[in-house]
Every structure is written in C-alpha cells, then in structure tokens.
Design a protein around this nucleic acid. Structure first.
Lengths: 197, 197
DNA sequence: GCCTTTTGTGGCACTGAGTGCCACTTTTGG
DNA sequence: CCAAAAGTGGCACTCAGTGCCACAAAAGGC
C-alpha cells in the first residue's frame, strides 16, 4: 500500500479532492440533478473540458464518495469469524458503517435523503451496489457449502445482493423518518428475510 | 376491465404498439444504446417530437415491455394461499414468469442478455424493480406477523426487494449461460438466502 | 354543412451530458 | 537548453429531452 506517488499523481489527487469538495457543496445546496457540470467546473476553477479529464461523469463524484464505505464493509466482512453464517456475517459487516452513519447523522442523513429521493441518482446507487456485490460475493462464497457447478456462484451473488437490498430498504426508511434508528431498521429488514442468530 | 375506449384512445394505443414493435426490432439488431430516438421515430413514420408524445423516454419502451410480467407476478402472488410464508409465496409467484421465459427462450434469453449487459439499461431494470416492490410489498406485508410501528413496513420492502435481487441474480447467471435452467438457478439463489420449504 | 374547440403534428431552438479534435502552454527529464 | 510528454481550454459535434409555436385534422354543437 505504501506506493510512492509522483508529483503529477499527487497534484492530480489534490485537484480531484478539491473538485469533489466543491461539487458536494453544490449538491448539498441545490441537489444533484440541478447542479450542472459547468457550475462544478467553475467552482473548481477549471473548464468544463478539464472536469471530464478528472471525472468521467457526474455520477463518478457520487460513486467515489460511496466507494470508501464499500471498502470498509468488505474489510469488515473479511474480518468476521469463518464459522459465522453469511447472513449474520453480512449484518455484522454492515454494522460499522451503520454505526458511523448514525453517529454523524447530520451529514449522513441528508446524503441518504438525496440518494433515495433524486431519481437521477438511483442508477448511481445501483452501480455502487453492483460494485459492492463484486467485492463482497467472493467473500460470501467462502462461507457457503462448496457446490458442484463451475463458474461464479449464483448463491453468493444472491445472498450478497439480498443483504444489500435489505440495507437499501433500511436506508430508504431512514431517509423518510430519521427518528427511527438505522441499525434497528436494518435488523428488522434482514431479520424478516432470514434469521439473524 | 371492460372499459370503453374512444376512437382516439384506440388509435393512440395502436400507434404505441407500432412504435414498440419498431423500436424492439431496432434494439434486437443494434442494441439499446446504439439505437437513437431518431431511428425509432423514422421507422415508425413520425417525427422525433411526436415520439416523445407517445413515450416520455427511451427507457419507457423497455419499462412497458417489462410491466406486463410485473402484473402477472403480482396476480400470482395474490393467488397464493395465505398460510404460505412470504418467501415461499414469492418463489411460487415468480414461477409462472420463469416457466414462460424458459419456454420461449429464443426471445427471452436475448432480452435478458441485453438487460444485463447494456449498462444504459441497468437503471431501467432498477426502475422496474422499484415499481415491482411497490406492487408486491403490500401483498407481502399481509403475510408477515402484524407489527407495532406505523407507516410502511420496512420488513415487507426488504423481503420483496431481496426476492427480486435473487431473481435478478438468477437471470444474470442465465444471461451468461443459457445451458443452465432459470428455475434451478432461482431455486439455488432464493434457497441460499432463506429455506424454501 | 358550418364553425369553434380540441387534439395531434412537425419544426425550431434550447439545455445538459458527454466526446473528439486541435492548438497552446507547462512540466519533465535527458 | 531542448525535445517529448502531459495538462489545458476552446470548439464543434452527438444524443436525450423540453418548451414553444404555427398548422392541419378531427369532434361536436348548432
């Protein structure tokens, strides 16, 4: 992980960070769809054309933001004891992220509201979920009884995608009513699908 | 259901059907993203502007195609015995659609391949799933133990979305390898999440 | 049958995302 | 110092989608 970055790479990273900051400030005040790339580029002090040299689409600004929590979930899942069932391990793996979201709800809650209420972001959320399934399902596969067929395991993909569907349902409910506790909602959601013992 | 349609409504319906037919012919030969609305409009003998008077977006051409099977699933779910658990009832409700897809695989399989491999269609598939959750989760809610809180039930949304995630995983695997049986894949997918007895 | 009102239609100009190309400047490294 | 590489802005383009307008066709009252 201790990769030596050239000056170019470091400046590029810094510029990306700055663009992200400006973009999220605009998203927070205007919403995602209402914010144009011209506005973001102007706020970041670059041309529209240059923006696209740092991010290949507006969606990527959101995807990158979500990616970090994805890596955290993957790490948490890998750290769970091997005897734990996939469903229980996934619930536990989500816990760190969920706790963090409840802790700084002032930031997380508006983000969830935005993610669940802006139609333009739905496809982005789903793309993130796709990536997360790719990241998590190999780890889930290890916890399933070994099987006959060759090729990727449908079961692992199904279990992972189901768990993420539950997380999504819980976050959606939380977006509608922040008096509820996200962790409780997730317990209810996942518990209704399969036992969490 | 025996609604009397005016001439206007009937012609409108006929035009919509014709546009759909032309559009799907183009999708089949070129793919979804590569087909422009100008091409569809021209094939259907109308201007681009008029196309948008019949369909509000290119996605709607796909959504409408999927909508029918959605209604079938909802009807099948409503027809299942009330004692059946939500998960088993959902598996059974999918069965009719799944069987139909396996039966005329020459049409269904390429469609699934297209739905799962064209990035531009992912958001459309998800929008369809959203609508299906809205349609099915009230029916699922009836099969869950009544609960305390008010407002929509997270559990019903979670169970429904999880089942649809399994269906999606099964269809995705089927899209990659049509030697496998879709019904078997769905059994594996849903069975891995929760027992199907 | 005529006349008014509604509905459908095409055209045009616009926004907004995203891309290809080109010319110019800056940085890098020999 | 000088040449190659990388970064930048501008321009013109495609494609989805929208608002507006003028015009043709159909509907319905009389």
């Amino acid at each position: 992980m201790g990769e030596v970055m050239s000056l170019r790479e470091r400046t590029r990273g810094a510029v990306r960070d700055e663009v992200m900051r400006q973009a999220w400030a605009l998203f927070a005040s205007q919403g995602f769809e209402a914010t144009t790339i011209d506005q973001i580029a102007e706020a970041a002090g670059m041309s529209r054309r240059s923006f696209f040299r740092y991010f290949e689409s507006k969606d990527e600004l959101v995807l990158e933001q979500l990616a970090e929590s994805g890596r955290a979930v993957a790490a948490a899942l890998a750290a769970r004891p091997a005897e734990e069932s996939p469903w229980v391990a996934l619930r536990a793996a989500f816990d760190e992220s969920v706790t963090r979201m409840e802790a700084n709800a002032e930031k997380s809650h508006p983000l969830q509201v935005m993610l669940h209420h802006e139609p333009a972001l739905r496809s982005t959320v789903v793309e993130w979920r796709r990536r997360l399934v790719g990241l998590l399902s190999p780890l889930v596969a290890e916890r399933l009884e070994p099987r006959r067929g060759r090729g990727a395991d449908v079961r692992a993909a199904a279990v992972t995608a189901s768990a993420l569907a539950c997380l999504d349902a819980a976050q959606g409910a939380w977006a509608l009513d922040d008096d509820l506790r996200l962790s409780t909602l997730l317990d209810q959601a996942m518990g209704a699908v399969a036992p969490l013992d």
